[in-house]
Design a protein around this nucleic acid. Structure first.
Lengths: 212, 212
DNA sequence: CGACAGTATGTCACTAAGTGACACGTCGCG
DNA sequence: CGCGACGTGTCACTTAGTGACATACTGTCG
């Protein structure tokens, strides 16, 4: 029974996504055909469409990698801690241990997010990825506030928080693509403070402090 | 010189959008072909693709109508007024005067927004429409704070505000489609307060009060 | 080890989305 | 009237995406 395991499925999707993103970046989305992606990955074109509903969404897994770290950190946020403290500790820990996503993938994600600013097809994918982020944030925030994830207030906080995270990602991504030093964004302390402040502001202070 | 005027172009786009939205609602997006939309409007299929980059985006003008009222009201928000007061006055005025968008269009927009919850193709269009809203909000907020629209703080406020407006629209839309009385949302006073509160919260209090 | 079941993939024919090129009708202008 | 500009229709064409079927792979049970 069982078919392909989720992790296996995720791996092939990521593999396809990497090649697609590389091609999108090198020659543009419109100029990249499904056949080309398939050839680059080494599978048949049909397989591409089995794993992705359309060409643009081939970029989604790579784009997702760009936010998956932060989302993972937020999932593990204990109720009795300040957001900035938790972020700082976790991001520092990730810097020492094996990072969950490779630097090359982060770079690809950054490039895709930057491309999304001008390529409308990719923008839709990017927004869909952020939409997914928002739903997951809804669960986290709902949990923290002791409310169901589909509660109106929870959804508002989640949407606002996801929105400012997106703006940050776009902002940093644009700077990096423009040639800014990547190290500039390696200051865990400052980064944590900025994210925490943005989320706290966007939720009117509802998310950020310990909850009793 | 000059070609088709913008208003003319907008009119044909809206016309196409109405028929497309009706068909999407009646038989689903996938089951609706470009040829069908063209026939319903009474133009050639080629003309459809001249005005829209793809099938799903045919719904965008109608979807946009759903937020255009609020956006117009916000554009005219004087610096020395509280948001709730301005909203209340303007929405009440619009109720008396000729409304900027017909009730039928509002209903179509509501249906499309509801459909977007399950149809991924439409969701992308809906998110793109919200993205547009966000950009316009950026101009309004930047103006209000005396900052350029691409300032990071302005963008964060605009994104968060656009996000909570979207959540509200989805929430109200879902209720109406589910059969709630439309009149329930005709209470201008309550509606103004809710929008104002949501925006004020999402911007950490930065947007909502008069600015000196 | 070997037969079997389930499923992911390849192949191929097919539908439909979307584009390019060109001809035609219309409208404003001298 | 003649001219130029532009929106639209027609048609051929490319390519995204699906359905159907054959095949190869993978794990399980005897």
């Amino acid at each position: 029974m069982g078919g392909m395991s989720d992790v296996q499925r995720a791996r092939i999707r990521l593999q396809i996504s990497r090649e697609a993103a590389r091609l999108f970046w090198d020659q543009g989305v419109a100029a990249t055909s499904g056949d080309q992606i398939a050839e680059a990955v080494g599978v048949s074109t049909r397989t591409i469409w089995r794993h992705f509903r359309n060409k643009e969404s081939c970029a989604e897994p790579v784009i997702m990698q760009g936010v998956v770290t932060l989302l993972g950190v937020l999932s593990a946020w204990p109720k009795d801690r300040f957001l900035e403290d938790h972020l700082k500790a976790e991001l520092a820990r990730l810097g020492v241990e094996e990072p969950p996503v490779s630097f090359a993938d982060e770079m690809l994600a950054t490039q895709m997010i930057w491309l999304a600013d001008t390529e409308p097809a990719l923008r839709a994918s990017w927004l869909m990825a952020c939409d997914q982020t928002e739903r997951e944030l809804g669960v986290i925030i709902g949990n923290r506030l002791g409310l169901p994830p589909d509660d109106l207030e929870v959804r508002q906080h989640a949407a606002a928080a996801a929105a400012v995270i997106r703006i940050h990602d776009e902002h940093i991504g644009a700077a990096i693509v423009a040639g800014a030093d990547v190290a500039e964004y390696a200051d865990v302390e400052a980064l944590s403070k900025r994210y925490a402040h943005a989320i706290r502001t966007a939720t009117g202070g509802a998310i950020g402090d310990p909850v009793i």
